[in-house]
């Protein structure tokens, strides 16, 4: 995956709660067999309105999306983070994320930052006008106005994001333990093995 360190840029003040993965990328766009090009279907229903946040010239090239509670709920489709990445987003900031989406995002180098609603409201107010900085190493979001919002992140995910690590490669290094488990399973629960 692409390594993530520090990112500064314009943020799109989206803000809606319970945005499901069908909204991020409708099922009719899932017939693709590649990971790229999904940006064209991203937020398709919203973008039927030409006056939408994602196609607004002032948000062009914005790498940060600010969302509401429970972002990414619903389907397990990894096409959702692929679509966000294809639109140019490298990080999403929200009060909470759905579980499966969070795992999928991380595996594609998309950093999810959880901040309390009050801080999200503050970022929403300055997004689109001023650049926001997301510093993963120091786990802090800053603004040109001296705002400093610290965030928590799973240490394993942080290490993978910072190093751009290949998780499958890491796991294959544990082959000895996997083979030992497999042998034990064969003895203890042969119907499962």
């Amino acid at each position: 995956m692409q390594a993530f360190d520090t990112l500064t840029g314009i943020a799109v003040p989206f803000g809606a709660a319970n945005v499901d993965t069908d909204a991020i990328i409708p099922a009719r766009f899932l017939k693709t067999v590649t990971r790229t090009g999904l940006g064209r279907g991203a937020f398709a229903a919203l973008r039927e309105n030409p006056d939408n946040l994602f196609d607004s010239p002032r948000n062009a090239g914005a790498p940060i999306l600010i969302a509401g509670d429970n972002f990414g709920c619903g389907s397990s489709r990894e096409h959702a983070p692929w679509a966000l990445a294809d639109l140019g987003f490298r990080t999403v900031i929200a009060p909470s994320f759905a579980d499966i989406f969070a795992g999928n995002a991380f595996k594609n180098g998309l950093l999810l930052v959880v901040l309390p609603q009050a801080q999200i409201d503050r970022l929403m107010a300055i997004a689109g006008e001023h650049e926001i900085t997301v510093d993963l190493e120091n786990q802090v979001v800053t603004t040109p106005f001296q705002d400093r919002f610290a965030f928590e992140i799973d240490p394993f995910r942080k290490a993978c994001l910072l190093g751009g690590l290949d998780e499958i490669g890491l796991t294959t290094q544990m082959e000895g333990e996997i083979a030992a488990y497999e042998a034990r399973l064969q003895r203890e629960r042969p119907w499962a093995a």
């Binding site: 389907s75 990894e78 499966i100 999928n104 595996k107 499958i168 294959t172 996997i178 497999e182």
Partner: peptide, 18 residues
């Protein structure tokens, strides 16, 4: 439980998930 495509690839290659 449901998994994403990267996890599918991980299970394909290792029969495990982290």
């Amino acid at each position: 439980f449901g998994i994403g495509t990267s996890e599918i690839e991980h299970v394909f290659a290792t029969q495990t998930l982290l």
